[in-house]
């Protein structure tokens, strides 16, 4: 019975599975754009290209400004994406 419940829970879990990839536990990072800053708390609201937004730790790449592109892994910006670097 518990196995059935576990399977049901797995089926309902958000898209963190073997077909879509797990952005947090793999070595995967996604590019996000800074929308606005909470400088006092060192956080930024960032948006993905699909429109979803999330709060991101910016300590490792500070200072950042709205419009900056960041590479985000597990809710933390680990690198900054720049025009020159991507050229």
């Amino acid at each position: 019975m518990s196995r059935l419940i576990a399977d049901a829970a797995a089926a309902l879990a958000p898209s963190c599975d073997y077909t879509t990839g797990c952005i947090t536990c793999g070595d995967v990072a996604i590019p996000l754009t800074v929308l606005r800053l909470d400088e006092e708390r060192g956080l930024a609201l960032c948006a993905a290209d699909d429109g979803n937004s999330e709060t991101v730790e910016i300590d490792l790449v500070a200072p950042v400004a709205p419009g900056d592109r960041l590479l985000v892994h597990a809710g933390t910006a680990i690198a900054r994406l720049t025009e020159e670097a991507s050229a």
């Binding site: 196995r3 419940i5 576990a6 958000p14 947090t24 999330e54 730790e57 597990a74 809710g75 933390t76």
Partner: peptide
């Protein structure tokens, strides 16, 4: 068993996308 099995047995286990969550 797995953590999902433990959740099914009643443990309060929650999936997060980041430590901040």
């Amino acid at each position: 068993g797995t953590l999902l099995d433990a959740k099914a047995e009643g443990a309060d286990i929650r999936m997060v996308y980041s430590p901040l969550d």
